[in-house]
Amino acid sequence: MNCLRFSWFGRLGKVLARQPLLTFLLLGGLLYVTEARWFIPLQAQTPIVIEAEKVERLRQQWTQKLGRAPEHNEMLAVLEGVALEEMLIAEAVARGVHRNDPVVLLRLRQNLEFLGMEVSPGALEHAYDLDMHRHDPVVRKRLRLLMESELLAGARPAPTPLDSEPPTPEPLHKFSFSQIFREQRIGPDELNRLQDARPESAAELSDPFLLAHRFHQVSEVQIARELGPDLARAVSSAPIGRWVGPIQSVYGDHLIWLEGRERVTPNLDIDRVRIERQIQAEKQNLELALADLRARYRWHVEPGEE
């Protein structure tokens, strides 16, 4: 078999060597087909035209929904969304997706049947002539999804590839501290007296307090959650091994004795990280691919400016 193929190619080569015109035509044809299939989408495309009637309909929908007409930049954002969808459809059509996808073909045949038209292999041209592939919502959605998948597959590499090292989570500090709590303001005399107190005595030296007198290895967020943001900030910046304060909270005055500050790295579930990365990368890549697409198409509102 291989010998046969080799011999066929060999004979073709000899024929082409003797016929330069045939060689030229063959290569030209190949280039034409290749460019039509793969490279046309990379060239500047026919501008997307959004009909004035559609613009007006969108404007009315907006007004009906929000009770006021859209402002210029708001309408622009709406139209950009519409234009992007049209770009995806146009790109899919340019790549011939509408002629190859079995779901699209099935749907177009169903439409022809519904219209009582003949359903034969050649009859699909009627559907294309009628622009069914551009107007039928099922086909449009199918083309849009396929195009997004295709763009995603051909997108630039993700900036956070799946197999790279997982990120190191931001380290955080965990604090262990005791507090003396007083409902009333702590005056200077009492403050002096309390400087000699041991942190183990914090509960006995405090006024009644529902929340804890000793916290073990809690983060600033957890302190804020219990005692308010001001106290959390004070703890996070307190020196170790002496009373700091009084610091005011909604509850009263607090003296803080910071026993230790430990820098910890939160645990990361590597499997989750990888999956999250995949989701994020896919989103990001799609946006990059869509940005490329936007750069290659122009759009304008009929009959206004782009």
Partner: peptide
Amino acid sequence: STASKPWPSLACDPPA
């Protein structure tokens, strides 16, 4: 900033 805050929910350091 699609990835400026890398998955805050994934870093967990539960208290005892």
